[in-house]
């Protein structure tokens, strides 16, 4: 080791410690980023970041029933049933939140952006089977994309899953799959 190298080692360590201490001191003067969840949450501060990958939800207003998300999901979290016939109906759209690993592949695959991550994360239940989110209560007609047109504005992100979570907290009710309606009985149906 030459003398200049020796000297430079000392100089570099002194300078870097000096700068490092300035950085940590400046951080001590800033506001902590942590949120004291759940009892000291300030309403003005968002709990999660905008691109947080929380519980999945499906906006059935714009779901085309293409099953792309079901096929992409590596662990089979999404279960979709579409009735065959002259008029297609989505009769089942379940997401097993207990199994989901929040990888976001289904979100990427979705052509219309119907399936998406929300900021919701608080969903603890006493039974793992209660973690299955049912999005279809009565059969829904899939959305048919119109060429060169924006899809209709969906519901607010998080509102659908929040509704399910709130309903689930009140008490778990046995899930009864909805019956497939006859094609002739009714025309269009509003989404749930």
């Amino acid at each position: 080791m030459s003398f200049s190298e020796y000297y430079n080692n000392i100089k570099n360590s002194v300078v870097s410690i000096f700068e490092g201490m300035a950085v940590t001191f400046s951080w001590m003067l800033r506001r902590p980023h942590t949120v004291q969840y759940p009892d000291r949450v300030e309403p003005s501060r968002p709990i999660v970041q905008q691109r947080f990958r929380g519980l999945l939800e499906v906006d059935l207003n714009i779901c085309t029933g293409c099953l792309a998300c079901q096929r992409t999901c590596p662990i089979g979290v999404i279960m979709i049933e579409v009735s065959k016939g002259a008029e297609r109906y989505i009769t089942r759209f379940d997401i097993e939140a207990g199994k989901c690993m929040y990888c976001g592949l289904c979100v990427e695959a979705c052509p219309t952006g119907a399936i998406r991550h929300t900021g919701e994360f608080a969903f603890s239940v006493g039974d793992i089977r209660k973690l299955v989110l049912h999005f279809v209560n009565e059969p829904v007609k899939p959305y048919k994309p119109v060429k060169d047109a924006e899809p209709p504005a969906g519901k607010e992100v998080g509102s659908i899953v929040r509704e399910i979570v709130n309903r689930r907290r009140e008490g778990y009710t046995q899930y009864i799959p909805p019956a497939v309606p006859e094609v002739s009985s009714k025309g269009d149906k509003e989404s749930t």
Binding site: T24, W27, M28, R30, P32, H33, T34, Q36
Partner: peptide, 10 residues
């Protein structure tokens, strides 16, 4: 407490 503030926690 000091460690918390320096690491942007409480």
């Amino acid at each position: 407490r000091i460690a918390g503030r320096m690491q942007s926690r409480i």
